[in-house]
Computed example of a mutant assay.
Amino acid sequence: MRFPVPLTSGRLVRRYKRFLADCLLDSGEAVIAHVANSGSMLGLATPGSRVYLARSSDPKRKLAWSWQLVEAGGALVGIDTGLSNRIVAEAIAEGRIPELVGYETLRREVPYGARSRVDMLLEGEGRPHCYVEVKSVTLSRRLGVAEFPDAVTARGAKHLAELAAMVEMGARAVLLYLVQRGDCDRFELAADIDPTYAAAAQAARAVGVEMLVVRAEVTTAGIEIRSVF
C-alpha cells in the first residue's frame, strides 16, 4: 500500500480525545490531525515524537491532516488502523501471504456472527469459506517483541468467539495480526493488559481458529507486508 500523497513530517505536541492530535510541522505550522486509532497507542504518543502526516485535499473533511506514522524505538510505526485491511487485501491479491493463496474471490465487510462484519471473506471452488479478521499490532514493550492488544478490547474477544463459531460450522477462520513496525521478529499476546482477550484467543485456537502473524515494512512511501512470523 502506497500513500497517495507525500507525507509531511513534524513533532507530536499531544494526543487527546483518542482521535485528535496537536502537531507542529517542521515548517513551524501548528495543525490538528485526525488519529485513526482507537487503542491506547501505548509507547507511541510521547510528546515530541517525530510524526508523519498526510494532507487531504477533500473539502468535505473536517480535518485536512491525518496522522500516519510515528518514530518509536528507532523504527517507523504505522498507527492508522483504518489502513490495515487495505494492506492485507493487497498482499493477499499479490500472493504474499502463502497461507491465504488459492482463493478466487475476496469480499470485504461481509455480515456474519452476531450483527458483525468480518474484515474479509475468501472464497474458492471446492474449499471452505475462509473468514479473516485483521488486527493492527503496534505495541512493543520489549526489544524485538510485538504485542497485542495495547488496551482492553471487548470487541476483539467478541470477534474471536465469532470466528470460533464459524470453524464449528465447517468454515476456515483466521485471526491475522498485522505488525506495523519492522523492529520486531516475535509476537506475544499482552495477557497482562487484557487477560480476557488472551483467554478468548486460547479458546479460539483450541477449536481450530488459525492465528497468523505477518510483518510489514513501514516507510514514508508506504506500508507493505514482507514476511510471515
Results as ranks from 00 to 15, higher is better:
Lys158Thr: 08
Met169Gly: 10
Gln180Thr: 07
Val134Ile: 13
Gly126Asp: 11
Thr219Gly: 11
Tyr177Pro: 02
Ser27Phe: 10
Leu139Tyr: 04
Glu168His: 15
Ala33Gly: 06
Val70Asn: 08
Gly74Thr: 12
Asp194Ser: 09
Phe187Ser: 04
Ile97Ala: 06
Ser136Glu: 10
Arg86Ala: 13
Thr220Arg: 10
His129Trp: 15
Gly39Thr: 14
Pro111Met: 09
Val101Ala: 13
Thr219Val: 07
Gln180Trp: 01
Gly208Asn: 01
Ala72Lys: 06
Gly48Lys: 04
Leu178Glu: 02
Ser56Pro: 07
Tyr177Asp: 02
Ile32His: 09
Tyr112Asp: 01
Cys130Val: 06
Val88Asp: 03
Val218Pro: 00
Asp22His: 12
Ala72Gln: 09
Arg181Trp: 08
Val118Cys: 11
Leu139Ala: 01
Leu178Tyr: 01
Val207Arg: 11
His34Asp: 10
Thr138Lys: 13
Val5Cys: 07
Ala21Asn: 01
Arg55Asp: 04
Leu139Gly: 00
Gly124Leu: 10
Thr153Pro: 06
Tyr103Leu: 06
Gly126Pro: 01
Ala33Trp: 10
Leu139Pro: 02
Ser40Ile: 04
Glu210Met: 05
Ala151Ser: 14
Arg115Phe: 14
Ala201Asp: 04
Glu217Pro: 02
Arg55Tyr: 08
Lys60Thr: 15
Thr220Ser: 07
Ala216Ile: 01
Met120Pro: 00
Arg127Glu: 13
Gly156Trp: 14
Val137Asn: 00
Glu162Gly: 02
Arg96Thr: 14
Leu163Lys: 11
Thr196Glu: 10
Thr219Ile: 07
Tyr16Cys: 03
Tyr177Val: 01
Leu25Cys: 09
Ala54Phe: 07
Gly170Val: 12
Val174Trp: 12
Ile32Phe: 10
Asp192Glu: 10
Gly222Trp: 09
Val35Lys: 04
Ser49Leu: 12
Ala164Cys: 04
Glu147Asp: 04
Val214Ala: 05
Gly170His: 08
Ala171Thr: 07
Met120Trp: 05
Ser49Gln: 12
Ala72Tyr: 03
Arg18Thr: 07
Glu133Gly: 03
Arg186Ile: 04
Thr8Glu: 12
Ile223Asn: 00
Asn37Tyr: 08
Leu44Ile: 04
His34Arg: 14
Ser66Ile: 00
Leu121Ala: 03
Pro59Met: 15
Pro149Arg: 06
Thr46Phe: 13
Val134Asn: 00
Arg117Glu: 10
Gly113Val: 01
Leu212Gln: 08
Arg141Asn: 06
Tyr112Arg: 05
Asp150Trp: 11
Asp119Trp: 10
Val228Ala: 04
Val218Ala: 00
Pro195Thr: 06
Ala161Thr: 15
Arg18Lys: 15
Ala146Asn: 07
Gln180Phe: 00
Arg50Ser: 14
Arg226Gly: 11
Val207Glu: 12
Met169His: 15
Thr219Ser: 15
Thr220Leu: 11
Phe187Met: 03
Ala33Arg: 02
Arg11Ile: 09
Val145Ile: 12
Glu104Leu: 11
Pro59Gly: 08
Arg172Ala: 02
Lys62Ala: 14
Gly48Glu: 13
His159Lys: 09
Asp58Glu: 09
Val207Ile: 10
Ala30Thr: 13
Ala54Val: 01
